[in-house]
Amino acid sequence: MTAFVSARLLRSLLPALSLAALLAAIFYLEPRAMSYFGLNLLLNLAVPIALATIAQMFVITVNDLDLSIGAYVGFTACVAATWLKDSPVLGIAVLLGCIALYAAVGALIYLRDLPSIVVTLGMSFVWQGLAVLLLPTPGGHAPGWLLAIMGLRTPFLPFAIFASIGLGFIVHLGLMRSAYGVVLRGAGGNARSVARAGWSMLKIKMTMFALAGLFGALSGLALVGLTTSADANIALRYTLLSIAGVILGGGEFVGGRVSPMGAVIGAATLTLAASFLSFLRLNPDWQIGAQGAILILVLALRLLVTRWERQR
């Protein structure tokens, strides 16, 4: 039994270790980054990416996949840069409506037994189209309060770090420790039994998708708070980044095995990876490719650790 504990401990530490290794490599290449200002620059964008990754994690927990999160974050960012600033009440109403729409999509997927990959694929077109209608060209301006929050100067470490850790902690409490969180995760492990035990699978799916919608919207807000203006394509890459973040954090596609802290760490790792590559003064042609290589490397490491652990 203790063997199980240590193997699982090591595997859950792996995301954190990868992050630390990456951080160390960055500091080695660029010692100036090892400052408050440097860390802030490096990890700023981690907050919206982490929020999107958490959103994706909720969907993955119930054995689905959300291929629309990137387009959705883009749309909410556009909403934040326009309506939220000009007429806050309308803006908030629209965002709440989006969350409701996300829940409705979850309901549709459950009731008609549809593949979430395709439905969310279709929704990605819808969100993108809405964003293009709202902001055909980049523009808008973030509301002042949003800029203030995202630009908070916290002592010791940048706001991004506190925000990410806080996010991971809150979601961990909610999903891993709370009584209903257990039911939500159980639905990913054995949906049939959870339903047979009397829990409403419909409510569970809608809850998870609504949570994805909520955190996706928060991601859009956070993003606009950093970039001050928005455009429809601003977060398209978040879709694949969020999936990668969940997996990097130790989550699995099926079975309801996920880790909120891991997802946040995975998101931070991916954010750092982008900076790491620019510090490497890599030929810009290969920047995209290097991201893929990093992903492969981290997963290979995880496999090696698991194998080594099994042999002991």
Binding site: P115, L121, F125, Q128, G129
Partner: peptide, 20 residues
């Protein structure tokens, strides 16, 4: 914009109707 929205809705509608 409308094109993208309708494309997406059509994909969803087709799947939802075929179902299962």
């Amino acid at each position: 914009g409308i094109r993208m929205i309708l494309t997406g809705l059509v994909i969803i509608a087709v799947i939802a109707l075929a179902g299962g």
